[in-house]
Amino acid sequence: MNLFLNGEATEAPDGATVGEFLRQLAMPEKGVAVERNREIVPKSLYGTTRLTEGDQIEIVQFVGGG
């Protein structure tokens, strides 16, 4: 399926969960936060939250800042 990750078009297997998507990206779960269509996906729901066509996914982490 097609979706958007951090504003860029990308693909994920049909029916993939957020957790599977993160693993596909080789993304550590620690220290990141995931937002799906402007709603935060809590870490406890990564395994059960399924992505759907056209989802807007944001993955963020801490960087240096003042």
């Binding site: 990750l5 951090n6 504003g7 860029e8 990206l25 080789a26 993304m27 220290g31 990141v32 936060a33 944001e58 993955i59 963020v60 982490q61 801490f62 960087v63 240096g64 800042g65 003042g66």
Partner: peptide
């Protein structure tokens, strides 16, 4: 220490992390 929150650079996962 103050820190900012920004999008993960998916294309460059090898970059150093603040943590």
């Amino acid at each position: 220490v103050t820190v900012a929150l920004r999008r993960v650079n998916v294309a460059d996962k090898g970059s150093e992390r603040l943590v």
